[in-house]
Amino acid sequence: MSATTLGARIAAPAARAPFWPSGWAAGLAWIGTAALISLWPDADDLGRSWELAVLAAGFGAAIQAGAIAATLPALAPRLAPLRAAGPWLLVLALALTAWELVTAKLDWLPRPFFAAPQSILEVFTDDYARLGESVWRSVLLVVPGYALGASIGFLFGVAMGWSRLVGYWAHPVVRLIGPLPATAWLPIAFFAFTSSRGASTFLIALASFFPVTVLTWSGVSAVSKSYYDVARTMGATPWFLVRKVAVPAAMPSVFVGLFVGLGASFSVLVVAEMMGVKAGLGWYMQWAQGWAAYANMYAALLVLALMCSSAVTLLFRLRDHLLSWQKGLVRW
């Protein structure tokens, strides 16, 4: 530890922060994209082309500034992560240009199925209220459902792994019911629950319950017997063995279950919102498709992707924090 920091300190003055070619290329590419969007007239009348050009230009200028700052010794260490993203920033600019060309400028792809970038930007600038509301409603639906399913699954998994009796009775049930996709319960859920909200919460909970249960159970079952022996010889009660030995030892496996369950929850969320719940991002996409507002659909899809990815990121952060004792964690 001290040796590496020492090494870095000695190396720092000698290494003149080098030129960042991909940063310069990316900055120029984004500015070029902005020029193309603003100077080349659209094939059809599209809104927000100017705003898109301004955004692209601003982004390009920011990258350019970063590329210059990255060569300054004082700022170089802080901009190191940005440096790694250089090729991505460049490719994104090229992809945006290509997309812009085949839709807005040349009209090669049939509209309205393929939306131009500025049309999607237009959705965000003009329909942000409804989109924001949809995100909020989705979050309100998925969070309680997931929390409920994951907590019950965790408790159930620990009980199954710990108690032979619970395992005996629960195992066949979990084996039969668990692999059934939660969406298969959709017709039953919507008449069994008076509100579509209750039905959806139940389905989301069910979807996260199964993977969390199975992986908690397997995690607890796999705990080395010698850990229990060690604790028992030192006077541990069964309750101590569960709380302080079985559960912490099973946590890596529990987090795999939480991760899988989160994905299943999102899948059920979208289906439930498309089928019965009259709110949320799934509903928004369904609604937009009904009006042939494909740009709105893509915009909602993008937001959904960001939402799911953020949730997974959050989960992984929590895991990294709680399981920092583990070696060689997969980085998200």
Binding site: S224, S226, Y227, D229, T233, M234, G235, V245, P248, A249
Partner: peptide, 16 residues
Amino acid sequence: DPSRTIMFQDPTLFPW
């Protein structure tokens, strides 16, 4: 009983 403890061949330390 804690008055009779074993030290095992493997350290069996709790890794967490």
